[in-house]
Design a protein around this nucleic acid. Sequence first.
DNA 1: AATATAATCAACCGCCGGAAG
DNA 2: TCTTCCGGCGGTTGATTATAT
Length: 271
Amino acid sequence: MEVHKRLLAWDAESPPSEEMELEELRRGPWTVEEDIVLVEHVTEHGEGRWNALARRAGLKRTGKSCRLRWLNYLRPDVRRGNITPEEHLLILDLHSRWGNRWSKIARYLPGRTDNEIKNYWRTRVQKHAEQRDVGGAARRRWTPCLPEPIHVASCGFPSSSYVGPIAAPGRPPPPYSFGQPEQAIAACTETAASSSSTTSKDSLPTTAQGGGMIEGGEEMLGVDGGGGGWAESQLPCPLNYDELENVGWESEDLLSGDYLWTVDDSWSMNQ
DNA sequence: AATATAATCAACCGCCGGAAG
DNA sequence: TCTTCCGGCGGTTGATTATAT
């Protein structure tokens, strides 16, 4: 709020010149110089009012472009590097609930941007899905299958309605480690509550859990997720990834998607 | 070593909703 | 109440890099 006031005052102090308005906007990759200017101005004046910021900074960029550059690249807390197995599973899980709500999903992955997650999904996850599924039907179905194995892996027990397979053939089942589910749920709820602008609109229906979602695969991949899902207050227990590794579930297995796909394949065979 | 192909990622575009005038 | 502006979001594109032939 304070920042906003400061920006308003800042904007009023020096209105944009006519020449600047007429100048051509730059597009394409950002230069180091532009980055420095943007970082300095955001540091000094704070985020928001991106159009004004772009003008004041003398950047020949749109406000949108500045915002995007800051959020996706220049922001100090942005995390770079490979997606970890934990993040991978979390992305799969959250996507199964909310569909392509990338910004929403990104809130649960500190330091990751919606753009990064979106790219990750399209290039790694979706690609893998296409390779594994030539027919298309299974692709639409696979995502809703994921929450339960993840739920089991992280919480140690299946949800009540789940009837699908848990363990991949030739593998030990994921560990059943009860831990403290109350704490986990509380932690998740807290996270959900602290995420900005969470409205009832964003919380998907709570009717279906686990196996109940399998039938609704088609809708699940659409924007806004469609049918079944969980409310945010029903987010998963934090993934107990260490325990997965302790019983022979390697990071590579999870990241390669083989386990996840095997789950889907097994489920398909049961039908 | 050169070329083709695939994978990755930064950036842009268009739409939508909310705030302000 | 209507209009305009701006920020946010998801989808898409295009450039760059990596890998295969």
